[in-house]
Amino acid sequence: MAAKIDLTLDCTDAQLLAVFWKTALGYIDEPPPAPFRTREEWLAQFDLADDESADDGAWLCDPAGDGPRLAILKVPEPKRAKNRLHLDIRVPGHGGPDERWARIRAEADRLVRAGGTVLEEFTGHHVMMADPEANEFCVAAASA
């Protein structure tokens, strides 16, 4: 059996990024692990420091269960450099190069409206973007 992976994203505002990434990926808030009924109940077992709260993290999942889980965690230090690992959002659909590029551009435009920023366009291939905290990701066509 192949190992499953989770992705963890450090940030300064977990709730802001959770809203963005739910919009970008179609993800939902992941339910707390059993037997806990809420994230707050689950977090209470860790005896958080007085300056930490449940809002300092967000846990997202693919509602179909196919994609990796995404943990978004507040950290004290700011982002300092380009990501060494980034996400590629693959836009589904078929068609010729112009149709694929139109779908990529439409998805990039949607993500700009959700708070993302276009960093660079590689016309006909992909768009390099950043989320609201400058974490890089790309929008490209899905593999045929």
Rank of each mutant, 00 (worst) to 15 (best):
D131Y: 00
L48E: 11
N135P: 00
G93H: 03
K22A: 09
D109L: 11
C61P: 06
R90Y: 10
A141D: 04
P92D: 10
W59I: 00
K22E: 08
A108P: 10
P68W: 01
G115H: 05
G26I: 11
E107R: 15
D131Q: 04
L43A: 15
D55F: 02
H126P: 02
T8Y: 15
E30F: 08
I5R: 10
V112Y: 07
K22Q: 14
D66H: 13
L48I: 11
K74F: 11
I5G: 04
F137M: 02
P68E: 01
L48A: 12
F137I: 01
A134C: 01
G57F: 04
A44F: 02
V112C: 10
D88E: 09
K4H: 07
W101P: 13
P32C: 01
D13L: 01
R69Y: 05
L85D: 02
T123N: 12
A71D: 04
D13E: 06
E121W: 07
K4P: 00
R39E: 13
A58T: 00
L87F: 10
T12F: 03
P33D: 04
T8C: 10
E120M: 13
A81W: 09
V91E: 09
P35N: 09
A34L: 05
F46Y: 14
M1F: 07
F46C: 08
F137P: 01
E40P: 06
G57P: 01
E99G: 15
W21K: 06
T23S: 14
W21G: 01
H86G: 01
C138R: 03
L85Y: 05
P78A: 08
A81F: 02
C11E: 01
I28E: 14
W59H: 03
E52K: 03
P132N: 08
L48C: 04
C61V: 07
R105E: 15
I72L: 10
P63F: 09
F20A: 12
M129T: 11
P97K: 14
G116E: 00
L7A: 10
M128R: 13
F122W: 13
L7P: 00
S53G: 14
L25F: 11
P97A: 14
K82L: 01
Y27K: 04
N135A: 02
R80F: 06
M128N: 13
P31C: 00
T38A: 07
G65A: 06
E107L: 09
E99M: 15
A134E: 08
Y27H: 04
A102L: 07
A64W: 10
C11P: 00
L119M: 12
E121T: 12
R90L: 15
L73Y: 13
P68S: 04
A2I: 05
G57W: 05
R80W: 02
D13R: 02
S53T: 14
G57V: 09
H86I: 00
E133Y: 02
P68I: 05
D47G: 15
K82W: 01
K4N: 05
E52P: 04
L48Q: 13
A114Y: 04
D10L: 03
E52F: 11
A81K: 07
A134M: 01
A64Y: 13
D55A: 10
D88A: 09
A106H: 10
P76G: 14
G65P: 07
D131P: 02
D109W: 10
A140W: 00
